[in-house]
Design a protein around this nucleic acid. Structure first.
Lengths: 339, 339
DNA sequence: AAGAACTACGAAAACGGTTTCGTGTTAATA
DNA sequence: TATTAACACGAAACCGTTTTCGTAGTTCTT
């Protein structure tokens, strides 16, 4: 087992000082050609690579960025991670992923672990627990320590930091507008409980579109599911109760799942009932019929978040200028709506 | 902006030495009650937390584990990560995720970056590029340096290390067996090119099941798709050419996608053609009809991999004993096959 | 009263680098 | 020949911990 070689080893072997070795490997002008060549050759031969930890300690920069997300088995979040990875890797950063599992406590614990020197900055989406509790002290603490933070998708106004979101309201608005233009009269909304910033925004877009088009808002057409998993009975009861010709869902699973329940009732999609879902993910693409979806552009979101973060990390100036970048939600039309 | 406080700050403020502070915070017997209480109170007040990087340098242990996977936007891999996270976090480890993007070069670069002190061990699945190239020197190098390595799912015999896989051959075998028992006569296999260890294994299971049941292997019933994305024309041509009453696919996407093409041809699933796919993922669950699938138990796989790795990392003895743990692939029956 | 044994703490090395500054040797200059 | 500048390198501090070892000062022996 050949252990990693250090500057000290090289220095001892070549009978020079550690500083000379360090400088030689950085091709410093201070060191003579001969010595440099000798040292560099030796280093290459023994495949010397500087120890990241030592460099981190010295520089007070880890080149790691911490990503805290509610759930990793979730298409949207993985696309965001992909975007982050892509940008971060190109800049020489590694990505430490922590999952809060929608829990406030885990979010706090994870952030505290990472904040003690392991990372240069955070990119995160708030857990459900945190949004319910409305307790953002752990976020405020890291920003007060001067650790840059970028929030994406699930954000809050109560923390001053960079943010990147999509225009959820507009996305929902244009989806509903499309349904109305297609002649749909009874448009339902299937959503989560409203402590999620995104669901709230999407709900507003839905209502606004109805209002702007002279349709009155029927609260009975709005179904709030308490869990992220779909309860078949609740949805079926909803369909029994209300006559519906279109459905907007705040996520893919709600959409695909309720589309299936509708088909089981012998109704046709999109002829009898149209469907649109948020998140243009893998389910929408492979659903049958293909699900018209509002794309959240996760990968782009991740890239932008990473860019914002790295700018702050590497920026000398600690100007307290925070931006919120709003991406445009775009409609990806498939067979679940009529063109 | 309140900067992080260090031992040195506390020492200066309380007019004691750094060593005294360090010991006091560890509740050492060496330090008097009075001094300890004073120091601990001060530390708590200023929310002192030791710097992870400094500790890593001292201990030569980072409490980070590196995970290198081909693709993060892939249900199976994310479930594995979830399992790894779960186990690792419970043991106080963080997870650094790197994506090789199926590329040999990126895999090498990522591993080299992490191997220079950033992590205590690796968990990984080989990229397509690596499996094609059959070049495993980067893996051998890290193991030679004494860095523990656990391979999962996409493994190779050429590297001596711990491994965790599912019994792909048996999984495919039992799937085909089931199709035969259902009276299917012309069972197709849609697979990738065969440099993937898993595809090869699955193919063998398919052939074996046919042989064992007195059916002859018709190579024309095996379709190898060059890409991970499905080429509609290739699959349609295949269906035009061959009369088929059942299909086994080596992944979800192949299965769901070709199931859809079959339905577009006016055939019924499962009556006319049955489908079984590998990876019991989100697509299988929400497909219409639900796709009978061979579960790969990603989360469990991740947990086991993490456990194996952490055992090696924390084990004193560098016994060169390597285990390969084989999980049982189980069939998850849904509507795409007849019971 | 002198040595032994504690007690309670500090100095310093170590982890593996980077960087500033000092210095001996040689070469160029006056 | 004496002075100076350039060159090539080393010593040491530093990043923030941990840990070993040394040692004042006190208390306990006999």
């Amino acid at each position: 087992m050949k252990r990693k070689i250090t500057l000290k080893h090289i220095a001892r072997e070549l009978e020079v000082s550690i500083s000379t070795v360090s400088k030689a490997l950085k091709n410093s002008e201070e060191i003579s050609r001969d010595t440099k060549e000798k040292i560099q050759a030796f280093a290459k031969l023994y495949n010397y690579k500087p120890n990241n930890i030592a460099i981190s300690l010295k520089n007070k920069r880890t080149k790691n960025i911490g990503v805290v997300i509610p759930d990793i088995v979730h298409y949207f979040f993985t696309t965001v991670i992909r975007g982050i990875e892509k940008f971060a890797n190109a800049k020489g950063y590694n990505v430490i992923v922590c999952v809060s599992d929608e829990s406030f406590d885990k979010e706090v614990i994870n952030m505290e672990m990472l904040a003690n020197g392991s990372i240069d900055g955070f990119i995160m989406a708030l857990s459900a627990g945190t949004q319910q509790k409305k307790d953002y002290n752990h976020l405020k603490e890291v920003t007060e320590q001067g650790i840059p933070l970028v929030l994406f998708d699930r954000v809050t106004d109560e923390v001053q930091c960079d943010k990147v979101i999509i225009n959820d309201k507009e996305g929902a608005y244009s989806a509903v507008k499309k349904l109305i233009d297609n002649g749909r009269k009874r448009i339902a909304l299937i959503t989560t409980e409203d402590y999620f910033s995104v669901s709230r925004e999407r709900g507003e877009g839905y209502r606004q579109a109805l209002r702007d088009n002279g349709m009155k808002i029927d609260e009975d057409l709005i179904l709030e599911l308490p869990d992220m998993e779909v309860d078949d009975d609740a949805v079926n009861a909803f369909f029994d109760r209300e006559k519906i010709d279109a459905v907007l869902c705040v996520n893919e699973i709600f959409a695909v799942h309720s589309m299936r329940l509708i088909k089981k009732r012998g109704l046709k999609v999109p002829e009898d009932v149209s469907f649109i879902g948020f998140t243009d993910g893998i389910l929408s693409k492979y659903a049958n019929p293909g699900l018209t979806a509002i794309a959240q552009h996760g990968e782009q979101m991740g890239e932008i978040a990473a860019q914002m973060l790295i700018e702050k990390v590497e920026g000398e100036t600690d100007e307290e200028q925070f931006k919120t970048q709003v991406l445009k939600a775009t409609l990806m039309e498939r067979e679940s709506t009529i063109n």
